[in-house]
Design a protein around this nucleic acid. Structure first.
Lengths: 126, 126
DNA sequence: ATGCATTCAATGCACAAGCAAATAATTCGT
DNA sequence: ACGAATTATTTGCTTGTGCATTGAATGCAT
């Protein structure tokens, strides 16, 4: 793969990312009062069995810094979608856990999320 | 393509975007004092013949809002990499033009950019 | 020519993100 | 067992981003 190809791959990737991200931000924001990263966090937690996550795990999953995650969780906590629990084994750590309200909100938002992705990624990634 | 596939495509896309973006940000920042969007603007201008761009054109090209672009251009202008010219035909508009220093900086940064992309996108997009 | 709606860019403002430093708890070496 | 190094998270600070608004120029209709 030559330089021209890599560059155009990267540009395509950026374009696709930007379009999809914006569409998600708009739809999730308007219809459910969630940002993309908010949804992503809820989504990870909802799909897991145990429902408990460490902050750093989530940060990796949604590609944010630790500090960004910490604040994001604070916002979600203030909205009652998530709660922090002290972690008994290692008291430096914090377990983040989705609440009933969080599960509910996620269930409401899920179809919107899927719809946007289907619309936005339809052709590009077969 | 079913829901599961779209979602995993989207997650792959986000992961790839995040990794590459961060690598570019770090390398371009450390070695050339440029952010990813800074480079992207210089890159567009350097590859064009006329070298003149309208603000909104650039905003679309680099996937930023018009206001973000306006400020980005101000920063590049302060660094002397770019200059604004009044546009004679339509005096609401502004032409952004790359300077000699801008061309120079872009030339320096280009190999770094290509190297990071090659390293980061090597396998994924054949 | 004047008024009105539209378009281009810049600015005020609020907010989310990253980096670095602070805080808190655990582990390791001796 | 005590202090040093390490790990997990939070907080202070600065910066970049988007939205809404403003200022200015243009096009169009009257």
């Amino acid at each position: 793969m030559n330089d021209v190809d890599v560059v155009s791959s990267w540009r395509d990737l950026m374009a696709c990312h930007a379009t999809t991200w914006c569409a998600l931000e708009r739809e999730l924001g308007e219809k459910h009062g969630l940002g993309v990263s908010d949804f992503e966090v809820l989504d990870r937690m909802a799909e897991s069995d145990h429902g408990k996550y460490r902050v750093q795990e989530l940060a990796d999953a949604v590609h944010l810094s630790q500090s960004a995650l910490s604040r994001l969780i604070s916002r979600l906590e203030r909205s009652g979608l998530v709660c922090r629990n002290m972690c008994a084994e290692d008291r430096r750590g914090v377990f983040v856990q989705i609440t009933e309200a969080g599960v509910e909100r996620h269930r409401e938002a899920l179809p919107t999320h899927r719809a946007v992705l289907n619309a936005s990624l339809a052709g590009s990634h077969r």
